[in-house]
Amino acid sequence: MLLTIKQLQVKYGKQTALQIDSPISFEKGERIGVIGSNGAGKTTFVKAILGLTAYEGRIVTDLQPEQMAAHMQSNAYVTTMPVKRIMEMILDTKIKENKELQELIAFFEFEGCLSKRYNALSGGQKQKFTIIMIMMQKAELTFYDEVTSGLDFETRQKLMEKMVEWYRDKEDSLIIVSHYYEELEQLADKILLLDQGKVVAFGRTGELFKTYCGDAIFVLDNNQINSNLTKGFRALKSPNHLIALSCRDKEEEKRLLAILMDNNVNFKRSNSDIEIMSINARERFYAGAQCRKD
């Protein structure tokens, strides 16, 4: 066991920013995706584990703070020297003498940036700079807190491709906080869904999907024709412009597929859509809470 969280509570003044009642455990080598809307408590969760914020409760781990590496939402460095010097100091090495670091720099196509100062780097280059050093830390547990926030679509895609490629055959334990569901689909094998400081769902992505969405889902445009065509199928909660239909088995899936194809309807099939899963998990969580209240 890498880490277990028991009865964790973080308060900012009188407001409870995070409350985890049931124990949550992370195993070595697991990749946990943490999702939730703004104010859900994602960064507070990261800060509590890193020992950067005061909390009540217990975080049981053998890890010392310096055994955890973290890419925070905002990462600042001095601007009085080129980033090459900062990198060499932080990693206590010389780039020209460290083959592994040279490879990582080349992997992220960062060679041209080494002589620049941090304030002269673009948003994507700044993220790459921290990521390279985080990866070189080879920490027992690594956090990525909204690593792609503020980046344009193309830069975000490229950066995620690089990260997915880098971690593909490795056994690093990761906690990845993101607003972007597709990033977590690529990187995480477990999901922790937070909302208003509470744990809405936690578990393996596939299992959570099965619990809240079924075997597979079909997502299509929300219009009258599609709505009429798919009557009789179980509709899940989804963004207003979409219809999400749940299929509990292959037979049901085949029936729906036939209707959609016969009527030339564009659709997307998925058995790992974290966005729809999250929406429905949240829905069920609050419905359950309401029932308990009543």
């Binding site: 010392q64 310096e66 055994q67 955890m68 590496a69 001095v78 601007t79 009085t80 020297m81 010097r85 900062i86 060499e88 100091m89 206590d92 830390q137 080879k138 920490a139 027992e140």
Partner: peptide, 22 residues
């Protein structure tokens, strides 16, 4: 990842940092 102790690289880094302060 080990806790990093003060070393020559850190002192050089700090010297460069001072040098950039008018």
């Amino acid at each position: 990842m080990k806790q990093k102790k003060c070393n020559m690289n850190m002192v050089l880094y700090e010297l460069r940092n001072i040098n950039g302060n008018f």
